[in-house]
């Protein structure tokens, strides 16, 4: 190649300054569309693949954990059935669940109401 032409090929090329695009984008008045067909800069295919792998791993971990805890609950229930309750614990039974005093108060309320209704009927 001739010397005088080689100088054109070997000459340094200018690169646009980083601020140039920002100025153009701001002055153009255009906006990014709502439905893009491509990736944003941070949405590289590799990053998407990595996110998908992490998501799958997370789902598997949750499923395995759930399976283990369910197994433990079933084991606990079977163990409870198989183990006889001590007599003291069995004696507590229903009496602890139903408060006789409270039930008596509720019964009184019912009686009062009945009396009130009877009085209204007379009037």
């Amino acid at each position: 190649m001739k010397k005088s032409l080689r100088i054109f090929r070997e000459a340094e090329r200018l690169q646009p300054s980083p601020a140039l695009w920002r100025r153009i984008a701001a002055a153009s008045g255009l906006e990014s569309g709502p439905h893009r067909e491509g990736f944003r800069p941070w949405e590289t295919p590799w990053l998407r693949a990595a996110a998908a792998v992490l998501l799958a791993a997370g789902l598997i971990a949750v499923a395995v954990k759930g399976f283990h805890s369910q197994g433990r609950a079933e084991q606990g229930a079977e163990l409870a059935k198989a183990t006889p309750k001590p007599p003291a614990q069995a004696a507590v039974g229903d009496s602890e669940i139903i408060d006789s005093e409270l039930m008596g108060w509720q019964a009184d309320l019912g009686e009062v109401d009945l009396e009130a209704e009877a009085a209204e009927e007379v009037l």
Partner: peptide, 23 residues
């Protein structure tokens, strides 16, 4: 670089007034 494929597509986007086409 916003990757949107071809020159034709970028022109189409630009005509729709989308920044991606211009970019």
């Amino acid at each position: 670089r916003l990757w949107i494929g071809s020159e034709g597509k970028s022109l189409e986007l630009l005509r729709e007034g989308r920044l991606e086409g211009l970019h």
